[in-house]
Amino acid sequence: VTTYKLVINGKTLKGETTTKAVDAETSEKAFKQYANDNGVDGVWTYDDATKTFTVTEMV
């Protein structure tokens, strides 16, 4: 189990959250659901070296 981080650069929501998951794909699903639940829709990137997802909304 690995800890993954999500950085949110939204128009109205900014911040970070973490989750523990067995792999990046599992954490990505959880993070995308979290973003969707909070009305964040944007461009996703992933940095495997830091286990960090970033979602950026276009303004």
Rank of each mutant, 00 (worst) to 15 (best):
T17W: 15
N38P: 01
D48L: 05
L13P: 04
D48G: 06
E16T: 14
W44C: 01
S27H: 02
T54L: 05
D41I: 14
E16M: 13
Y34V: 04
V59R: 10
N36S: 14
M58S: 11
G10T: 15
K51Q: 09
D41T: 14
G42F: 03
D48S: 10
T3L: 13
T26Q: 12
E57L: 08
F53P: 00
V43K: 08
E28G: 09
K32I: 08
D41G: 07
T3F: 07
V22K: 13
T17G: 04
S27A: 15
W44D: 00
V43C: 09
Y34T: 02
G15H: 13
V59S: 13
K51T: 03
V1Y: 14
D48W: 06
E25H: 10
T50S: 09
T19R: 07
D41E: 13
G42E: 01
I8F: 06
T52E: 03
G39N: 09
M58Y: 13
W44M: 03
A49K: 11
G10R: 03
K11C: 15
G10E: 02
T52D: 00
T18E: 10
T45M: 08
V43W: 10
K11L: 14
F53V: 01
A49T: 12
K20H: 10
V7K: 06
D48N: 08
N36I: 15
G42N: 00
K5V: 10
T12W: 13
T17Y: 15
T50F: 04
Y34C: 05
T3Q: 11
K20V: 13
D47F: 03
G10S: 12
K51E: 03
V7W: 04
T17V: 15
G42P: 00
A21T: 06
K11V: 14
K32R: 15
T3K: 08
T2F: 14
N38Y: 13
T3A: 05
D47A: 03
T19G: 05
V7R: 06
K14Q: 12
A21Y: 04
V55I: 10
T56A: 05
Y46C: 00
F53L: 02
M58I: 14
N36H: 15
K32C: 05
Y34R: 01
D37A: 12
K11F: 12
V7Q: 05
E57Y: 07
V40N: 01
T12G: 09
L6E: 03
V22L: 12
T56P: 00
F53M: 02
D47N: 10
E16L: 11
E25G: 09
A21M: 04
Q33G: 05
N36M: 15
I8H: 02
N38M: 15
E25R: 12
F31I: 02
T18D: 06
T2M: 10
T17C: 15
T12A: 09
V22T: 12
K14G: 05
V1D: 11
D37F: 08
K20W: 12
T50R: 05
E28D: 04
G42M: 02
V40P: 01
T17E: 05
K32Q: 06
E57V: 09
V43Y: 11
G10I: 11
T45H: 10
E57G: 04
D23N: 11
K29V: 09
G39V: 03
A24R: 15
M58D: 13
K29Y: 07
V59P: 12
K51N: 07
G10L: 14
A24C: 14
E57S: 07
K29E: 08
T56M: 06
F31E: 00
G42H: 01
Y4D: 04
A30M: 14
T18W: 15
T54W: 08
T52Y: 01
T19M: 15
A49F: 10
V55Q: 00
T26V: 07
V40A: 03
K29F: 07
L13H: 11
A30D: 06
F31Q: 01
V22H: 11
N9D: 09
T50L: 07
A35H: 02
A24K: 15
T19L: 15
V40E: 01
K14F: 10
K51A: 05
V40W: 08
F53A: 01
L6A: 02
L13M: 12
E57R: 03
E16C: 15
Y34P: 00
E16H: 10
D37T: 09
N9T: 06
S27K: 01
E57T: 07
N36T: 14
A21I: 03
F53N: 01
E28W: 15
T54C: 05
E25A: 14
L13R: 08
V43E: 10
E28M: 14
K29D: 05
D48A: 13
M58K: 11
L13I: 13
W44F: 03
T18M: 10
D47L: 03
N9R: 10
D41L: 11
V22E: 09
D23E: 03
L6S: 02
T2R: 10
K11E: 08
T12Q: 10
V40D: 00
A30V: 15
G10C: 14
D37E: 13
D23H: 04
G15W: 15
A30L: 15
V40T: 03
S27L: 04
V40S: 02
Y34M: 05
A21R: 03
K20E: 14
G39T: 03
V43P: 02
T26S: 11
T18L: 10
V7N: 04
G42W: 06
K51F: 09
T3S: 07
T3H: 07
K51M: 06
T19K: 07
K14W: 10
G10Q: 05
V43N: 07
A30I: 15
V55G: 01
Y46K: 00
E28C: 15
E16D: 06
Q33R: 10
N9W: 12
K11I: 15
T19V: 15
V22M: 12
A35Y: 02
G10A: 09
T50G: 03
K14V: 10
A35M: 09
D47W: 02
K51W: 05
V43H: 09
E25W: 11
Y4F: 10
V59I: 12
W44Q: 00
A24F: 14
E57A: 06
K32D: 01
Y46M: 00
T56C: 06
G39K: 07
W44V: 01
V22S: 11
A24I: 12
T3M: 10
V59M: 12
S27M: 07
E28Q: 11
T2S: 11
G10M: 14
Y46E: 00
Q33W: 05
Q33E: 10
D41A: 11
N38D: 02
Y4R: 04
A30Y: 15
L13A: 08
Y4C: 04
K51D: 02
K32L: 08
A30T: 14
A49M: 10
A49E: 12
T3Y: 07
G10D: 02
E25P: 09
E25L: 12
G15R: 12
Q33V: 08
D37Y: 08
A35N: 03
V22I: 13
Y34D: 02
E16N: 07
Y46A: 00
E16I: 14
V7Y: 07
Y46F: 06
L13N: 08
D41H: 13
T12M: 10
L13D: 05
V7L: 09
T19S: 07
E16G: 09
A30C: 13
V55D: 01
D37K: 10
L6H: 02
V55M: 04
N9I: 14
Q33M: 09
K11W: 09
N9G: 03
K14N: 09
K20L: 15
T50K: 06
T26M: 10
T19N: 11
K5N: 06
V1H: 10
E16S: 12
K14P: 06
T45Q: 08
D37Q: 11
A24W: 15
K32N: 03
N36Q: 14
G39Y: 05
A30W: 15
V59W: 13
K5M: 07
K20D: 14
A21F: 06
E57C: 06
Y34G: 01
D47E: 06
G39P: 01
W44S: 00
K20P: 05
K29L: 10
D37P: 01
T52R: 02
V1A: 11
A21V: 03
T2Y: 14
M58L: 13
D47Q: 03
N9Y: 13
F31N: 01
A24Q: 13
T54R: 05
V43S: 07
T3E: 14
G15C: 15
E57I: 09
V7I: 14
G15L: 15
T50A: 06
V1S: 10
M58H: 13
Y46D: 01
T18P: 02
T26D: 07
V7A: 03
